[in-house]
Every structure is written in C-alpha cells, then in structure tokens.
Design a binder for these strands. Structure first.
Lengths: 238, 238
DNA sequence: CGTGCCCTTGAGTACAATCAACGTTCGTGG
DNA sequence: CCACGAACGTTGATTGTACTCAAGGGCACG
C-alpha cells in the first residue's frame, strides 16, 4: 500500500486518520497473472481496486476486433475507483503484466464520502486527473502524428512512474509488446514497429523487450510536444 | 436551472433539500456570446459553471494550431465541475453558440462535500460520466474510421440532447460549423465535408446550417457502431 | 528441435491531409 | 440598392501517413 500513499503524498497532505481509514478499508489482496481480465464492461461492481505493482489498462473494443487502451494504470493508482459511482464500467480492465492489487469494498467508500470529505475530494481529484489524461490522449489520437503520439506517451509514462520511484537512471520497465503499445496509440503493430525505429534512429529513445531506455529526454519531449501540466504534479491546493 | 435538474433527475432522485442547496448556490448568471473563451487553461478557478442553454466545448491545442475538442457540453451539464478539485484546467473552455450559464462558487461545493455526501456522489458520478465520454471518444479517434466516428458522434449528441428535451421529431439543432465538427472528430474541414456527403448519400442523416436531420437512426447507429451503454442512461443505483 | 510469440521487412493500397481554387450566403457600407 | 468582403462550404488534384497483406527471422520454452 505504501506506493499508493507515496503517490497521494506527492500532491496532498494526508492526516494519520485518513491514511488509517484507507489502510483499514482493504478487504483483500490479490495477485493477477499477465493478460488477465480483472473486470468486464457492464459487470456489477461492489469493490474498487488499488494497483500495488504491475501494469493494468482500460480496454474498449470494436466488433472488428480493433481495440483501444484508453488509459494505463500504474503502481499506486486506483484502477477503477470510478466504478464506485458508476457501479458498472463502460470498458474492460485487464493486466499487462503480473499484478498485485488491493480491493476496497464500496461500502467503505460510501462511509468515506460521509465521514471523510477531504479524502473524498482527494479521490475525486484522482478521477478528474484520470479524465485529464483521457483528454490528453484524445488530443494525441485526434491530432498528433504517430511519432509525436508515441514520444508523448513515453514521456507521460516516464513522469508518472517517476512519482513512485519506478524510473531508473536511463529509463524504466514497461512490460508490454508492440501490439499493446499500438492499442494505446491507435496504431497498427506494423506501424508501431516502424515508428519505434524512427525514434531509435533519432537517438531519443529505445524500447525493446519491455524496457524503455531514454537517451535524450529534451528531444523526446520536443518530438511529443510534451507539457506535464495536465498531470497536475506537485502539491495541489484542493 | 430546470434543465440541470431535469438531467439529474433522469438518473437520480434528489431530495428537496439537495435541490434547494444547489439552487441557492448559484452566485451569478451570465450570458456569453458565440465563440467566447470562458476559461483558459491554467487559470486559477474559484467557481464552476452550469450550462443552461447553448453549446460549449473543451479545447486543447497544439503549437501547430491544430485543435482538438475533447468533449461537448450541452444544456444542463456542468462545464467545469472538475475545476473544483483541479483548481486549474488542462484545457480551454469556450462557447460554440451564445450561451447562458450559472456560476457556483467553489466554497459552496466545498460545503456540499461536507454536508451533502449523496449530492457529492451524484456530481462525482457526473465527472466520471464525462470521463466515460472521453474514453468513447478515444476509441473513436484511435480506431474508428472517419465515417463511423462521425455517425457515432451524431448518435451521442442525439441521445444526450434527448435527455433534456432538445430533440425534435427528425433531428436537433447543433450550431457548429464543419471546421468545429472536425475538431471534435480529429478530421480536417475538407475531409469532414466529404464524409458528411457520404452520410447524406447513404440516406442516414443530413447536417447543414447548424441543423442535424436524422433520416435513419438504426442505420446511423450501425455505421457508428453506437451503443449508449457508456452514457449510463436511466436510473442509476449509486 | 519444433512451435509459438513477437519483431521486422517489403510491396501495394487507401484513407485522410494538403494545396488551391471556386461558389454561396450574408452582413455591411458606399 | 448594389458592391464588396468575410465566413463557410464545396470540389479537384496531389501527396503522404498509416494500413493491409504477406513473408521471414529471432528467441524462449516445452
């Protein structure tokens, strides 16, 4: 759970009572294998999930089989706290790697909204941050060319992983394949491959075998026109 | 304000006290002209806005001048309640037509989170619904071909306007031009024009002079692969 | 040592962008 | 009242980014 509080504390001060309330709210820990669908669209929900380690994603599919990942969940994130108010999701949630999660019953979140208004606002902020990430991806998918979209994506994941100490000197682990990367970027696997080669040749970045190596972050940010404002980093007023 | 409560009541029961609290929270009514930027990205916020009539949008821009509209706000919607927790936005908010709005100070929303937990959950639901719409647009922008994207868009607006009685027999008013439609769909104006012609020729729909006329809704839904599940229509558990 | 998964490459295609011009409508001012 | 300009819509020609189809290569694992 520490990774969750670490992420929270990067933006907000939490009282001991608030932190204790959340710690005491976990009803169960689980481990999921790679490529496991944890929640299916439409299914009735009575708990939400905190991702402790690994990578999960939100998936939406077309009948044609084409699939879009609409957001990546990283260690420390709620994967589905929006399910607390929505009660069923409009998308699947699945793992991209083996994952460890903590489950929190919705009754506890209900109690939270009644007894811990500040904590409620903190988590409301969290879902609004998710929406901000969705919007940035809409901009990428709608308007950025493939290479900028990809560069922007790697910048975002860099910054978000850095929040929880998962960035090392020259890069980070991202255990997904090129097809899944394409599902994030709205590109076919073949085109992902060719675009990756462009980024490699430009000397910005390498991505292979689930490992991102960044050679030139400023250049990468320039290519992706990356501005982290939408991630609301650092202490927030609230 | 009635249009706002009408939309709320389509999904939730509101107590008289809750409704009164919101009515009493409006500090000001305003009228904006067409094409007015009401909120700029990054600007510090101390109120949120309910759209009473007209059409507004959330805009994100690239340096190149390309622009993406990430969501449309319709009469009855909060345009920026996410600003309550975020305190500044990652996008501009502007009008697509002349608009009438009601402003609610953030102090009142703060009080709401402390005294009206159920109302808080209702509005939290609202921002989660916004995120669901963002996700559906990500799917459109990333994976649907232009014509399906456009058909899907017109279906969504149809359903959302219908909620507040703004759909007439054969269609609805949508006072935007082809360039703005392209900014919603991630298409250039020229391509929007050609795609519209395809929809016209197929007999599904006509869009001209700010008016959408639907000739064959089932066909339109088929073209856009539209399933309204993501709009969480009808009474919600919460 | 296959077999399957993933990555890579090549050739051809297509959807959508770009560039450029022209038409229509409408409001405004001479 | 007509001329003009601006905004918007339409069309044609051309280009290019990204997709499709197809095949081959590397590597891990049973």
């Amino acid at each position: 759970m520490d990774v969750h509080f670490r992420k929270l504390r990067s933006r907000f001060h939490l009282s001991p009572a608030e932190e204790r309330f959340i710690r005491d709210s976990v009803s169960e820990f689980r481990t999921y294998p790679e490529n496991h669908t944890a929640i299916r669209a439409g299914e009735e929900l009575n708990h939400s999930t905190i991702l402790l380690s690994g990578f999960m994603g939100r998936y939406k599919d077309l009948k044609s089989g084409l699939r879009q990942i609409t957001e990546l969940s990283l260690a420390g994130d709620w994967t589905d706290i929006h399910g607390f108010t929505l009660k069923r999701l409009d998308h699947d949630i699945g793992t991209l790697s083996p994952c460890r999660v903590a489950l929190v019953p919705h009754e506890r979140l209900q109690v939270m909204t009644e007894a811990y208004p500040r904590l409620t606002r903190v988590y409301w902020f969290g879902t609004n941050l998710d929406a901000a990430i969705h919007r940035e991806w809409e901009l990428s998918l709608g308007r950025r060319p493939g290479i900028a979209r990809m560069a922007h994506f790697f910048c975002e994941v860099y910054v978000r992983l850095d929040l929880v100490g998962l960035v090392q000197a020259a890069g980070y682990d991202l255990p997904i394949n090129q097809t899944e990367l394409g599902e994030c970027l709205g590109l076919t696997p073949v085109h992902v491959n060719r675009t990756l080669q462009q980024l490699r040749e430009s000397g910005c970045l390498d991505f292979r075998a689930g490992r991102v190596t960044i050679y030139d972050m400023p250049a990468l940010m320039r290519v992706g026109e990356f501005d982290p404002g939408y991630l609301y980093l650092g202490p927030q007023p609230l």
